[in-house]
Design a binder for these strands. Structure first.
Length: 404
DNA sequence: GTCAAAATAT
DNA sequence: TATATTTTGA
C-alpha cells in the first residue's frame, strides 16, 4: 500500500481548477496489492531523464587523445614516475621506456616505484614476467611475491580499445590484441583479464542503452499522442502518490569503458551531462552531493507543496489503468443527447462540457509535463485517440468539479 | 580463450 | 565494509 500524503487546498481561484481534481481522492481506489507492486518496474524510476540528458555513449578517440596529449611529448624517463610509469625496478622502467610505454603502471606489492637513476634493482624485468610465469613461477616472483599488478591507465586502455576495434570486438582475442598493442610488458593474461572486463562492461552498457532506447521510444509515443496538444500546465496537481524516491543520489552518468577522462561531478539527472563525456578508467571516488535535488519541479529546501497538510489530497497521474477510474469520476458526466434530439426537454449543456480534444490533450499534456511519474508503475499511457474513443464511446464529458 | 573465484586496491 | 579491479587457475 502506498502512502498518500495530503495536499493543500488552495483558495486561489486561479489555481482552483488545478487543485480541484485532487479533492476527489476518495473516488479513486489506490489499493495496491502485492502483485501490483511486483509489477512495478523500478528500473524506470532511474530513467526519468529523457534521451537528451543521456550521456554520449560513444567513444570518441579524439576526446581520448586530447585528454592525454598534454605534455606527453615532454615526458621523459626521468619524469616517468610523475607521469604514469610506476614500475618496480629500474630495469622495468627502462624496458617500458624502450617500448615507448610511458603508459603503463606496474606496481609491485611493496609499491616501490622506479625513478630513473635509482639504484633499486629487482630480480626480474617486466619483459621477463611472462616467461617466468610460464616456467612454473607462475604469478609469483622469486621471492614468492605476487606478480606486479598492471594498472590500466587510460592511455593503455585506449590502445587496448583501439586494438579490439581493429580486430572487431567479437574476433578480438588476447594474443592478437597483445600483438596490435605492441606492449611487451603486458602479458596475454593481462590482456585476457582486461578483455573479460571490457566485454562485461560492454554487455552491461549495451543493455542499458537498450533500456534507454526503449524509454526513448515510449516517450516518443507519448509525444506523438500529445502532439498538437494545447498544454495546460498544472491542470492537475502533481500527485503525492509517488513511490519512495530512490536514495538521494544524484544521477551518475553511465560509466563507459573506453572513455579515459575522469568522471565529471555528479549531476542531477535532469541536467545535460557535462562535457567531456564521463568515462572510465580510472575513476576517482565520486563526490557525493550534499543534498542533491531529486524532484526537479520542486526547489530543494522548500517544502514540497503537495505534501503539506491539507484537507485535500492529490490525485494520481492519469495513465492507462486509471482510465476506468477516471471515467467513473464525477468530473466526468455523460454527454447529454445532441441538442437536435433533446432540444426541448434536456437542459442545455455548454459546449465546454463536452469532451474536446484539447481537454483530453491537456490531460495527456500533463503526463508529458511530468514524465518521470507514470512509467515507474510499469504502466502504459493511453493514446489521445484511445482516450477520445473511450470518452466518446461512453458519452462522457469532462466537467469541472463543483467544490473542493 | 573464457570464466569465475581469489586477491588486492580504493 | 563494500565495491571495483586485477590476478589466478581451472
Amino acid at each position: 500500500m502506498l502512502a498518500v500524503s495530503s495536499l493543500p487546498c488552495t483558495t486561489d481561484e486561479s489555481r482552483q481548477v488545478e487543485a480541484q481534481p485532487s479533492c476527489f481522492m476518495d473516488d479513486f481506489d489506490f489499493t495496491i496489492d502485492g502483485d501490483l507492486l511486483d509489477d512495478i518496474d523500478f528500473s524506470d524510476i532511474f530513467q526519468k531523464f529523457d534521451d537528451e540528458s543521456l550521456p554520449d555513449l560513444e567513444v570518441d578517440p579524439a576526446d581520448i587523445l586530447a585528454e592525454f596529449s598534454v605534455d606527453r611529448e615532454e615526458t621523459t624517463l626521468v619524469d616517468c614516475y610523475e607521469e604514469t610509469i610506476l614500475v618496480t625496478n629500474e630495469e622495468s622502467c627502462n624496458k617500458a621506456n624502450e617500448n615507448n610505454v610511458d603508459l603503463i603502471d606496474i606496481v609491485k606489492d611493496d609499491d616501490v616505484a622506479c625513478h630513473a637513476g635509482d639504484d633499486k634493482s629487482s630480480s626480474s624485468s617486466s619483459g621477463e614476467a611472462e616467461s617466468k610465469q610460464k616456467s612454473g613461477g607462475a604469478a609469483k616472483s622469486s621471492q614468492g611475491k605476487k606478480k606486479a599488478k598492471v594498472d590500466w591507465t587510460p592511455e593503455l586502455h585506449r590502445r587496448f580499445v583501439q586494438a579490439v576495434e581493429q580486430l572487431g570486438v567479437d574476433k578480438a582475442v588476447p594474443s592478437r590484441i597483445l600483438e596490435l598493442m605492441g606492449i611487451d610488458s603486458l602479458t596475454r593474461h593481462n590482456i585476457a583479464s582486461h578483455l573479460q572486463k571490457y566485454r562485461s562492461h560492454r554487455k552491461h552498457l549495451l543493455a542499458r542503452e537498450a533500456e534507454a532506447t526503449n524509454w526513448s521510444q515510449r516517450r516518443q509515443i507519448y509525444a506523438a499522442a500529445g502532439c498538437g496538444a494545447k498544454r495546460v500546465i498544472n491542470t492537475w496537481f502533481p500527485p503525492t502518490v509517488v513511490f519512495p524516491p530512490p536514495p538521494m543520489q544524484p544521477y551518475r552518468p553511465l560509466h563507459v569503458w573506453g572513455h579515459p577522462s575522469v568522471d565529471p561531478p555528479m549531476v542531477p539527472m535532469w541536467q545535460a551531462p557535462q562535457s567531456p563525456t564521463p568515462t572510465w578508467p580510472p575513476h576517482p571516488p565520486i563526490p557525493q552531493a550534499a543534498n542533491p535535488p531529486f524532484w526537479p519541479h520542486y526547489p530543494r529546501g522548500q517544502p514540497h507543496a503537495v505534501t503539506q497538510g491539507s484537507p485535500c489530497v492529490a490525485v494520481p497521474r492519469f495513465h492507462a489503468p486509471m482510465v476506468p477510474s477516471v471515467m467513473a469520476h464525477p468530473m466526468y458526466r455523460p454527454i447529454p443527447p445532441p441538442a437536435s434530439a433533446s432540444k426541448s426537454t434536456s437542459p442545455q449543456v455548454p459546449d465546454s462540457a463536452h469532451p474536446s480534444k484539447d481537454s483530453i490533450d491537456a490531460v495527456i499534456g500533463d503526463v508529458l509535463d511530468k514524465p518521470w511519474l507514470p512509467l515507474p508503475l510499469g504502466l502504459k499511457a493511453p493514446s489521445t485517440e484511445s482516450v477520445m474513443v473511450e470518452l466518446q464511446r461512453q458519452g462522457i464529458s469532462k466537467v469541472p468539479p463543483s467544490n473542493c
